[in-house]
Amino acid sequence: MSAGTWSGLAADVMTEDFTLPGELEAREPPEARGPSRDAVRLLVSHGGTGEVGHHAFTELPGLLRPGDLLVVNNSATLPAAVRLDRLAVHFSTELEDGTWLVELRRRTASATEPFTGGAGGEWLPLPGGATLRLLERRTPRLWRARLDRPVPAYLGRNGVPIRYSYVERDWPLEAYQTVFGVVPGSAEMPSAGRPFTSDLVTALVSRGIGVTPITLHTGVASPEKDEPPYPERFEVPETTARQVALTREAGGRVIAVGTTVVRALETAALPDGGAVPEPGGAAGPLPGGGTEALPGGGTGAPEGAVPTGGIRAARGWTSHVITPSAGVRVVDGLITGLHEPRSSHLLMLSAITGGELLSRSYAEALREGYLWHEFGDLHLILR
């Protein structure tokens, strides 16, 4: 997707642009103010009625119905930022050959900003005696690079969570984990799952609401960039694909917890299986890149297209961007944070709820003082 095409799509998402006041940027986790992490607000948009309501997030079990299914992202957050004297290296995505996509950032007094320097073949000395070699530029912001030692273990000793300027201080890695995160791999937190607690999950299950996982490892995002998301590694396991199908057959609703979940589920429901190459690599089956069929499932339609709402187990890479014109096949609702204008997330939200209701919902959120970003409030959208 070209930059011009993307800008045109993004501009059409919301007819009313808005400016996010600084006081509505969540600068710390809610538990830093005393309450638990589920002490956030929940904006609720009903596509069927056009109503917009205001709730506490702890009211979620009563807002859903027995037989509904929550699909969550079980990716855990890495301490993906490594700080040098003047630069920071953000480790984004591991590739099949053991190299990583990384972003170079210039350190500032408050956080970091994009750094356009660097050259192929350049070696960067990192803390702890490690060396990072820049191999080639893969996008305007991302390099393919190789560290001289295993990256996850190195980050565990020398990395910190990625932090943007609206968060005024460092927080421990635990603040960037969700109760569902058991598979390390995300550069940035799948934040829609953050307010969930064990007690809240118990209340949901006790009400007859199912919970099942997918895995999608998020790469780096940058609030100052107006660009589509990069390809990301995902897996929709066979058990989850089966639960989604059974829920829909029984008349229940499939509610995605996070835009990452929507991306994974909708990729697995594409007629062609959603196969894409590894970022910057050649097309083909894994390990070279693309989407691989799982036992008992598969991403390619055996005979003809996947029926609307159909989903199969799948894993690989997805570059799927959900737009209003493409629509959604699987999800009936979404729990997500509040997003900035001109982002791919708003394209997705508009595809689920419609542009008019989305505009009214965001106007309500601004008027009522909802908080934005990963430590902020949540938005439940029901079709």
Rank of each mutant, 00 (worst) to 15 (best):
V182N: 13
V167I: 13
A175W: 01
Y164A: 05
G181V: 03
G156E: 14
S198C: 00
L200T: 01
A192Q: 11
N158V: 06
S165I: 01
Y164M: 10
G181I: 04
G185P: 06
V182L: 12
A175F: 07
P184E: 06
T178F: 07
D170W: 05
M189W: 04
L173K: 09
E188L: 13
P172C: 04
P190I: 00
M189G: 09
E168D: 14
G193N: 10
S191R: 05
Q177I: 01
E168A: 14
G159L: 03
G159F: 01
P195R: 11
A192R: 07
G193V: 10
E174S: 15
T202N: 10
I162D: 01
G185S: 02
T197C: 03
V183S: 14
Y166H: 15
N158G: 00
P172L: 04
V167D: 03
E188C: 01
Y166C: 04
S165A: 15
A192S: 06
F196E: 08
G181K: 07
T197F: 04
P172A: 12
G159K: 08
V201G: 01
G181Y: 05
P161Y: 06
S186D: 02
S198E: 15
V179P: 11
N158D: 00
G156T: 07
F180L: 10
S191N: 08
G185E: 10
R163K: 12
V182E: 14
L173S: 10
S198Y: 00
V179H: 08
F180A: 07
E174D: 15
D170C: 01
V167R: 02
P172I: 00
P172D: 14
R157V: 00
Y164V: 05
M189P: 12
Y166V: 10
S198K: 12
T202M: 00
D199S: 13
T178C: 03
T197R: 02
R157A: 15
V182H: 13
T197G: 02
D199Y: 00
S198N: 10
I162P: 07
R194G: 03
S198L: 12
R169P: 09
V201D: 04
L173A: 04
T202L: 06
E168N: 13
P172T: 03
I162T: 04
A192P: 12
L173I: 13
P161H: 07
G156K: 13
Q177D: 01
A187N: 10
V179D: 04
R169L: 08
G156P: 12
R194D: 05
E174C: 02
L200G: 06
I162V: 15
R157C: 05
P184A: 01
R194E: 04
V179G: 02
P195H: 09
